[in-house]
Design a protein around this nucleic acid. Structure first.
Lengths: 217, 217
DNA sequence: CTTCGATTCAAACATATGTTTAAATCGAAC
DNA sequence: GTTCGATTTAAACATATGTTTGAATCGAAG
């Protein structure tokens, strides 16, 4: 007995709760969602949340971490690769490539696994969530990668005043967040416009938009 | 007795509730805010909300309408003026002017009256609010002006495919919403960056950004 | 089969919420 | 000063929430 082999069921229960919570948090919001709704839809007992996670807040944290840690790893790798490449060539990285390195994995993440689409909408919203609980957890996880993105962009646009760069980055993130949140866009869009809301299509529109904005004279 | 002259106090109470609610809804969110918090801070009785407004939901509606109706009027006037001017001159309106006509009154509104800053943050968030109550009320009020903005932009950029224009507009609105929400930005920003968050400064950064994005080739 | 820790379960708990109620209070009109 | 409708007030109501509890159940190890 080298390893504490927990019952097979435990993982199931935890995953079921995470999946259900992700769905509800994304579609209804953190505070509006009750644990009873989550556990009811997941088919597990109400007390399971507190048993496995400790509290509703800790559950939210787990929902974020499960997907955000891998996603951040991908984004970090891509950004660092671009930085190394630039140093190697002695040239500054291209603005478009930097933005793409951050945005593309983010939007593509939607299709990586079932449920990820809900998660992407959740993240898009968390940027501006009024609730302290949500924002605190979110920014703790997103902060470091945000700083790396900022620094890499500074390499790409060294002539831009830092303050301006900082705000333009926020404008770009605002556009991204809005896009992410409209992820499941069928319910928002007027008829005839829902064609262009596939990931590829969105990328081909969003990246030129933010690149042009970032490089505006 | 030509007119039902209600007691002087009624207006006070209603205004006090609206002010307090606006503040709480903006800073904490609709569902997280309790009527007891609102009435407590306003110094009025708990039941006053239901007496004067009917329900918490109706209160939210009143909070939106009080400021959004006048603000929309200003935006509508400016946009229609630009349209008329373009027709008169037989030229297409400039993209920048159109965006400016929408964005400038929005951001400037912050300084128009005390409390408006909270309201602007509230509006910025409502674009992506997960709660149906909030979103429904918000979109009912924002829908018509959004359509006018879309049509005016189509005049400015007739060669752009409608679908692309539509999404670029959403990107721009995302950037605007993000900016609005960071209205009281002191608490979000790292030290050294809070200089540039005055209204004038933000306008001079945001408008070129979205214009460039909208006109990107 | 028995044992034992991990997990599940139904029930209860304490608290907070939006809303309603019925009495009290106010302020002008007569 | 009395009257009457509008407003305010304190209390109660019904319900919903996150959490805790203690017994029941499970599943493998001995």
């Amino acid at each position: 007995m080298k390893v504490k082999k927990p019952k097979t069921r435990q993982k199931d229960t935890k995953q079921l709760i995470l999946d259900s919570a992700e769905r509800f948090f994304a579609r209804e919001g953190f505070h509006v969602t009750s644990l009873r709704a989550i556990t009811g839809a997941a088919g597990v007992n109400l007390a399971a949340v507190n048993y496995h996670f400790g509290s509703k807040e800790a559950l939210l944290e787990a929902v974020f971490e499960r997907r955000l840690i891998p996603l951040n790893q991908v984004r970090r790798d891509k950004l660092e690769q671009i930085r190394d490449e630039a140093v190697e060539k002695g040239k500054r990285p291209s603005t478009k490539k930097v933005l793409q390195a951050f945005i593309e994995p983010t939007l593509r993440f939607k299709e990586s696994e079932p449920g990820a689409e809900d998660f992407i909408a959740l993240v898009g919203r968390s940027f501006t969530d009024p609730d302290d609980t949500v924002r605190k957890i979110f920014f703790r996880l997103i902060g470091p990668i945000f700083e790396l993105l900022f620094e890499t962009l500074r390499d790409a646009l060294p002539e831009l005043p830092e303050n301006l760069l900082y705000w333009r980055l926020h404008f770009a993130l605002g556009a991204l967040a809005h896009t992410m949140h409209m992820s499941g866009c069928d319910k928002f869009l007027p008829v005839g416009f829902s064609d262009g809301c596939g990931t590829e299509s969105l990328l081909s529109m969003l990246i030129p938009f933010v690149t042009a904005g970032m490089e505006a004279t």
